Computed example of a mutant assay.
Amino acid sequence: MAIAEITTKLLAAKKDKGITFEELEKTIGRDETWIASVIYRQASADMDEATKLVTALGLPESTAEELTIPPLKGSLEPQIPTDPLIYRFYEIMQVYGMPIKAVVHEKFGDGIMSAIDFSVEVDKVPDPKGDRVKITMCGKFLPYKKW
């Protein structure tokens, strides 16, 4: 995965300041995962959001403008991902992708889940056998039209 220069700069500033995505959520007023997607240049911020982000990270305000440019989305290379966490999502889709698709079609009909009108939340669920990762994806259903 190629990391944009601006992403490297933002992540370094975030680390130097010791700021979490959750803290940025409180400062900017947007979900922590959305903020991470702006930093990784998978989403664009408006100027107010971008200014709040770079200010919180102690970067020059001039840095904000780049975060308002609509990015080229899709950061994964076309081969199977090798990062263990990202690979697990690939593995999940290999194992459960078709079953999830079948259930979605049974409940909604022929269509897709929007990745535009979409949100994702990442939560930590304490468990005595080891904490669990809870990921909730919520996307608008878009039926295929007939013509």
Rank of each mutant, 00 (worst) to 15 (best):
V125F: 01
K129M: 11
E91F: 05
S75K: 06
L57C: 08
K129V: 14
P60G: 05
K14I: 02
C138F: 05
V103A: 15
P143T: 06
L72Q: 15
L72F: 01
E61L: 10
F141M: 07
E66N: 05
I28Q: 03
T136E: 04
V122F: 15
E22Q: 06
A102P: 08
P84V: 00
T136S: 08
I69K: 14
I100W: 11
A50L: 12
I69P: 10
G29F: 07
L85D: 05
L85W: 04
T8R: 09
E23F: 07
D31A: 08
V122H: 14
E106F: 12
A4T: 02
R41I: 06
P71Q: 06
Q42K: 02
K17V: 06
E121W: 08
P84E: 06
V54D: 04
L11G: 15
H105L: 11
I86W: 05
R30V: 02
I100A: 09
L76E: 07
A4R: 07
L59N: 01
R88V: 14
V104R: 05
I39A: 09
E121A: 10
V54A: 01
D83S: 13
L11Q: 15
Y96H: 14
L72R: 11
S62F: 00
V95H: 02
F141Y: 13
V122P: 06
D110H: 11
A102T: 12
I135V: 15
M47L: 15
T136L: 12
K17P: 04
Q42G: 00
E5V: 02
L142K: 09
L24H: 01
K17H: 04
L57H: 09
V125L: 07
T27W: 06
R30P: 01
L53I: 00
T136Y: 05
E5C: 01
T136C: 08
K145Q: 08
C138A: 09
F89N: 10
P60N: 07
M113F: 13
Q42L: 03
E65L: 09
D131W: 09
Y96P: 09
Y90L: 08
D16C: 06
A13D: 01
E22T: 14
E65N: 11
S62Y: 04
F108P: 04
E25M: 02
I19S: 03
S37F: 14
I116P: 01
R41S: 03
A50F: 13
D48A: 13
T20L: 00
M1T: 15
V54W: 08
I3M: 13
G111M: 05
K107W: 04
E65V: 13
T136W: 03
A115K: 07
W34L: 10
L24C: 03
L24G: 00
D48E: 11
E32L: 08
V120Y: 09
V120F: 11
G130R: 08
S75C: 07
D83L: 10
V38P: 11
G97M: 00
Q42I: 00
K140V: 12
T51A: 15
E49I: 10
T33M: 15
S119K: 10
K134N: 10
D31F: 05
W34I: 06
E49N: 13
A56W: 00
